[in-house]
Amino acid sequence: MAHITVEEVEHVAQLARLRFSKDELEEFTNQLDAILRFVGKLESLDTEGVEPTYRAIEIVNCFREDVVKPSLPIEEVTANAPESEEGAFVVPRII
């Protein structure tokens, strides 16, 4: 099973929008490697033709009536934002 390298951990950190120091990267690489080796034990099981389970209950397409209801007030929603202005979230300039 997979042996994970520091470079791969860096790549995954980029995908996950995380940042690690050099020491953290090494520690995470070792820990993730141990965990991946452990979960690799699933490889030994034959699952040919077994349907995957994504939900543990038998329930599909739970519809409800489409009724117009009040939404949360904008001021209350933006009150938790680190920065907001005129009912909008403010983010760093991107262009």
Partner: peptide, 13 residues
């Protein structure tokens, strides 16, 4: 496939 799908199949078992 090797991880998420495999695990979801084992979940069925």
């Amino acid at each position: 496939d090797a991880f998420y799908k495999k695990a979801s199949q084992v979940r069925t078992l």
